[in-house]
Design a protein around this nucleic acid. Structure first.
Lengths: 256, 256
DNA sequence: TCGAATTTGTGCGTATGTATC
DNA sequence: GGATACATACGCACAAATTCG
């Protein structure tokens, strides 16, 4: 089939082709897994050079609608099953590690690796913790796994003025290892009352991509989480999650 | 300067160039606003054809690191000032439009355009609303502006079984126009008790980019919000926000 | 098992239009 | 107005992976 274009189409040809295919993907005419026409076919159908068809495909790939397999063809992308991470207060009340409980709720096995060291608070972190820049903090880097696959990164900071000389100074050692911030802080008499999470998103950077084993250019969600005991910040963390695998669920009570 | 490449470099040339520039952008050697070498310059420096330099730049644009200005040059993207959108229950209690109140809190003037029509619920929406697919719903498309600049898109769905023959059937007409879902539903005796928001993120699509006036390659945050009266869903909406302009704040009480 | 055809990935060179400076 | 820079488009070439007879 050769598509005859109107003369007065203002949009570039590669955008027209991409829009055309995209709308057919979105409306279900081209379901996931469908093989799309090859570059040569598209070029013939739309009456353009092969390089224009190539441009259209590249755009759809960068938008996440299409994946290509060299030598085989281009296919409507099958979305990986989107899993949910629930971030609400009641995840804190289960006695187990919040992450492991989240994973168990989905029938997956949660595990993690971590590394802690004392350092000084960078300006951004100091501001979030409400302490002077350079204040000593315990920094802990985590890689979280679900069924052995990396799914989340986290870098946590706790002021040593709170945890020094307590059994919980190292988050992943001692009787409260892996128990979650709320439970650990409770063990030293610090009563966590609420948390604030600031959600942003951006393209993944190379070091993160390597740890999460995702291709560069994919989108990640970044959560800056801070736990408070009344008005005092007691922990803050930067959490990184691949956006195409997880959605983050917040429950918001509509109080009086 | 001409960069001599080792013979055994496995990566394609355009990726090497992109990786090189990207790392210099990320580590601050090329700060935001810096003008990058032109295609012709890059081609000379790296000893490749101009089309290869073009490919590298396109990749960086699609990743959101670079923006191009025709006739002028390519520049490290300046991150606009990040503003905050607070999504917590108390934003519902202010009597005014929640969006206008959010904007007023930042010293900006909020406004919006909307268009409502009755339609039938697509499968995904029907599932969120807990109604059979094809159920009649009121769909309203919004474009929200801050100081005249588009900052948020929203598509809202309300089952007509709830609002038919009431004064609020059209969200943006009548005495409760622009008042927010909680207040509008209260006006017909529906007591909204909580909301759930599912947060995801992905690259912006061409049609959205046009409405939001953002360059292609930026990241957007997408929120699927559903309001509930006890267990019954009374409204659901898809909200689209440019991730480089806003971060989304959630407050999470840590209850007993 | 082999080989030919197909398909994507990468790269080169050219041309034209339009925006900027 | 001229030089520069990006945007789009055309056409070609070859490598590598896949497919299929």
């Amino acid at each position: 089939m050769v598509v005859i274009v109107g003369k007065a189409d203002p949009r570039p040809a590669y955008l027209r082709i991409a829009d055309d295919l995209r709308s057919r993907i979105v409306d279900g005419t081209l379901p996931p897994g469908t093989r799309l026409p090859s570059r040569a076919q598209l070029a013939r159908e739309y009456g353009v050079a092969e390089s224009v068809a190539l441009e259209a495909m590249r755009l759809l790939v960068s938008e996440g609608f299409v994946e290509t397999r060299p030598g085989s063809g281009s296919y409507v992308r099958r979305r990986p099953q989107v899993r949910r991470l629930v971030r609400s207060w009641y995840r804190e009340k289960r006695g187990d590690s919040p992450f492991r409980a989240d994973m168990a709720a989905q029938g997956r096995q949660g595990s993690w690796e971590s590394h802690s060291e004392t350092t000084t608070a960078p300006p951004v972190i100091a501001e979030r913790l409400g302490v002077p820049p350079g204040e000593p903090v315990m920094r802990t880097n985590y890689v979280f796994y679900a069924d052995g696959e990396p799914v989340m990164l986290s870098t946590s900071y706790e002021p040593l003025t709170i945890t020094r000389n307590t059994p919980i100074v190292l988050p992943e050692e001692g009787p409260y290892a892996g128990k979650g911030v709320v439970e650990r802080m409770a063990a030293i008499g610090v009563n966590v009352t609420h948390a604030a999470e600031a959600v942003t998103a951006r393209p993944v950077l190379a070091p993160e991509a390597e740890l999460l084993k995702v291709p560069t250019g994919t989108t990640i969600i970044r959560i800056a989480r801070t736990y408070y005991a009344d008005e005092r910040a007691v922990e803050t963390a930067d959490i990184t999650i691949p956006a195409d695998r997880y959605e983050i669920i917040y429950h918001i009570p509509v109080g009086d």
